[in-house]
Design a protein around this nucleic acid. Sequence first.
DNA 1: ACAATTTGCCTAACATGTGAAGCAATGCCT
DNA 2: AGGCATTGCTTCACATGTTAGGCAAATTGT
Lengths: 159, 159
Amino acid sequence: MTDPVLRPFDQSLPMALMRAREATMRRFRPILSAHDLTEQQWRVLRALDQTAEALDVGDVAEATCLLGPSLSRILSNLEQRGLIRRRTDKHDQRKSLASLTAKGRRLVARIAPLSEEQYADLESIVGTDDLYRLFDLLERLIDTAPNADHESHELKESA
Amino acid sequence: MTDPVLRPFDQSLPMALMRAREATMRRFRPILSAHDLTEQQWRVLRALDQTAEALDVGDVAEATCLLGPSLSRILSNLEQRGLIRRRTDKHDQRKSLASLTAKGRRLVARIAPLSEEQYADLESIVGTDDLYRLFDLLERLIDTAPNADHESHELKESA
DNA sequence: ACAATTTGCCTAACATGTGAAGCAATGCCT
DNA sequence: AGGCATTGCTTCACATGTTAGGCAAATTGT
């Protein structure tokens, strides 16, 4: 029964997660900034590149882990640069649908191999097995979250 | 030999790290906002609470994983609120030394048990063993970083 | 049909992330 | 001592994180 002394930072999980992410991103950031893209802008372009059709803003937010206000600004930015396009959904006029332009798709295609190259390096250094172990542990951590809608898997079985 | 297609987000390590951190912080954020503190402000207070003496701004930046400009603003904020104190180092007048005020130390003491309670919950859910496994994997990831000064352990042995 | 509620996206305001530039204090060199 | 690059912190400018509030379209209840 010791006093409730605060654990030092080396034993803080959020801190370790942040440093790990920072260390990982250090590989990719130079590629992106060379193409005048931020991390977040790149995540949006990737999300849109993954589907043939357009996505509504809510889906993009979920996929990219961005909050509405940030995403709204990012979409405006990318739209002005001619990388994406926005139009309102005919069936629900509250929704705004986003999709890549040809220019945007070309940009993703140009960056993709560079990104995958870095990822391959990372995997070879850490080791494929340990990388999967890490993914599993992170996934478990995500599932312990109090009450977040991360596209709950739980409903499917109980429905 | 497939085309260099981009991996989906569920196989992206930076994405998994971000979601895991977000899920973890969801436990702590309510405690902090109830005391009008942001994550980052809390990290600074913690860092200063860990040492008896004052820390220079560079050390605080390293300990809290904050960049100079952010830290500079945060210190101004905390100083205005009377939670910390700043003075210039007599031996090197470029340096600015920060330390907690009595008020700041009381605030940390009030929050600490709440924070540790959440941490204990987390550990009991994830399991102590898996938590340590996770720390190990994250540490390895951090050490694969291209060229960052994370208080390199390497020098001590080779010196 | 109509009022109340909810949903989806937006803007506003403030705090932080990030790279570049400024500036004073220090260290180095001759 | 006098130049000169370096260090430590700050400020600036712009992009994002975060919470709150706004507005129009859709849904619900009657």
